[in-house]
Design a binder for these strands. Sequence first.
DNA 1: ATCTATATTTCGAGG
DNA 2: CCTCGAAGTATAGAT
Lengths: 220, 220
Amino acid sequence: MRLVIAKCTVDYAGRLAAHLPSAVRLVIVKADGSVSIHADDRAYKPLNWMSPPCSLKEADGVWTVTNKAGEKLIITLEDVHHDSSHELGVDPGLIKDGVEAHLQELLAEQPHWCGEGFRLVRREWPTDIGPVDLMCRDEQDAWIAVEIKRIGTIEAVEQLSRYLERIRQDPAKADCRGVLAATIVKPQARVLAESRGLTWVEVDLAVLRGEREPALTLFL
Amino acid sequence: MRLVIAKCTVDYAGRLAAHLPSAVRLVIVKADGSVSIHADDRAYKPLNWMSPPCSLKEADGVWTVTNKAGEKLIITLEDVHHDSSHELGVDPGLIKDGVEAHLQELLAEQPHWCGEGFRLVRREWPTDIGPVDLMCRDEQDAWIAVEIKRIGTIEAVEQLSRYLERIRQDPAKADCRGVLAATIVKPQARVLAESRGLTWVEVDLAVLRGEREPALTLFL
DNA sequence: ATCTATATTTCGAGG
DNA sequence: CCTCGAAGTATAGAT
């Protein structure tokens, strides 16, 4: 990894055109050849970058970074304050906990949070356009397809609709219902779901984990 | 901006829980207090980060970064290879050209590129699931909803379909047509649009800007 | 190689 | 302040 602090201008030509006027910035060149340019604020997003795979040519204070798609990043160095290189090695990578996969696991164990009397038939129920997260049946043995999301958006309603369209082609499941289960269901997703005759439900991750009692309103 | 190359472990507890095993990484502390941790690959995304505003406490090789929401990032330094600070100043920021907003502006001024005889009724026509980019009428006063995208994908067709579903609930607009306008319309989007009775049109940014003559084929 | 779905998405605009 | 849509989204996984 090479770190350069320098006064520079940057031009990007590719999916759009962008220009950075002259200023002091951090330029990072990583072992995979990727390049990013950072200002002294915002942790996450670089001002400009070129994702790997790409190649860097250095000539006379002008760095030209190109990729296969013909995108081009031109960094013109005017004044180099710092330039150092470091050996980092391969990173063992991030271990995550609490993402959608985890939510699906918990709801598969406790499908009643998706609807009263629901029992799990199987996780990742296959359709010809991909698997539905959960397939359940209720106390009347009626079928229910459940789509699970961390955030329930319009897009999730569309996805569930597409699955149901397929599932209902089987006469035995022509009345299959659909439920969108998410920790947050956006207002517009609620409207769209209801207008399509789908149900939505917000689930509490802490309750699923048994870390918190269900809301009191359930016992009223 | 402070740059530290160090062997470290990192723990994040917030929207999810995440852990980084011991390895050599770059830690960036920016002037706004934000912190990011980078591996030696992937230009864009840090392994871990804390967005501003947040505060950093340093004690005995353990950095604790916290924000208002109670999220916490704990960096345990085991071996510091490099540690330097640099004065960067405020960045003048990125100048972009060619994004969707620009395209919508130009098409609002010249709606005839979306279809013959189109005239603009209003930009951002509201529906209960969000605004349609352009609402137009043609020479027969028929309604047309226009969805504008830089790249026209299946997703754009879905979006336009949802809007039309809403708009057509008004009997006065039951026959409202739909047009997808984009600089590039993907083959799959063309097929889907046509199968739904929607029109698609590719528009040329340079022509809209008056920088280039329309293609000769228009005059055949 | 292409498509699909996720993301601690971030970021910005508009109500 | 929230909500929503765009992003050069990036990135990982499946086909």
